[in-house]
Amino acid sequence: MDSRCFKLKRSWFALAFQLLIFVLLMFVLYQVLALVLWVVCAVAGLVVYQLFYRKSPQIDQFEHLDGREWSITLQQHTQRVMVSHVIDHQIYVVVYFQHAKVRPLLIWCDQLPMQQWKALKVLTKLV
């Protein structure tokens, strides 16, 4: 496989991070709210997660073409985009695009094999 073509898997780190934030928030709310209000907040949080975050479209593949030009594949639909900047946070990488329609791409280290993760980190320093 080309070192500039990245096929993304589902991230377990992202799911664990979201769950951790939700548990911490529920713990704090448990301390300050009555039990009935806390249960309402917990159910509302789970509904919001199910409706908005879990159903959000995921980018299946992205490929570095040339310079700041990349292609992203979303459910068999390929689109060319221009990268404005890339931020490396060691455990994940955030790719920001110039087009307002395309949301920033968050890539966790467990979404790629280790060799491709290292190639992506090198590529982020070049972009």
Results as ranks from 00 to 15, higher is better:
Trp38Asn: 13
Lys118Phe: 08
Leu126Ser: 15
Gln116Tyr: 12
Gln98Cys: 10
Leu8Tyr: 03
Gln31Glu: 08
Ser84Tyr: 14
His85Arg: 13
Met114Ala: 15
Gln58Pro: 04
Lys118Met: 08
Ala34Tyr: 03
Val86Gly: 06
Leu51Trp: 10
Lys9Glu: 07
Phe97Arg: 14
Gln98Gly: 07
Lys9Met: 01
Gln75Asp: 12
Met82Val: 13
Ala16Pro: 02
Pro113His: 11
Ala119Val: 03
Pro57Arg: 02
Leu8Thr: 00
Leu29Asn: 03
Phe52Val: 02
Met26Arg: 04
Lys55Gly: 07
Arg103Asp: 12
Lys121Pro: 11
Ala44Phe: 05
Leu120Cys: 03
Val23Asp: 07
Ala16Gly: 11
Ala42Asn: 07
Phe62Leu: 01
Phe6Pro: 01
His99Glu: 15
Lys121Cys: 08
Ile59Thr: 02
Gln79Lys: 03
Phe22Trp: 14
Tyr30Cys: 05
Leu51His: 04
Ser11Met: 02
Leu105Pro: 11
Val83Leu: 00
His64Gln: 03
Asp66Lys: 04
Pro113Ile: 01
Arg80Ala: 12
Phe52Tyr: 15
Val83Thr: 06
Gln90Pro: 02
Leu37Arg: 10
Val48Lys: 04
Val81Tyr: 12
Ile21Thr: 15
Gln58Thr: 00
Ser3Ala: 07
Trp117Leu: 00
His89Cys: 12
Val86Glu: 00
Met1Phe: 09
Pro57Gln: 05
Ser84Glu: 13
Arg103Ser: 14
Pro104Glu: 14
Ala119Asn: 08
Leu106Trp: 11
Val32Lys: 04
Val95Gly: 06
Gln58Ile: 01
Leu112Lys: 00
Arg54Ala: 04
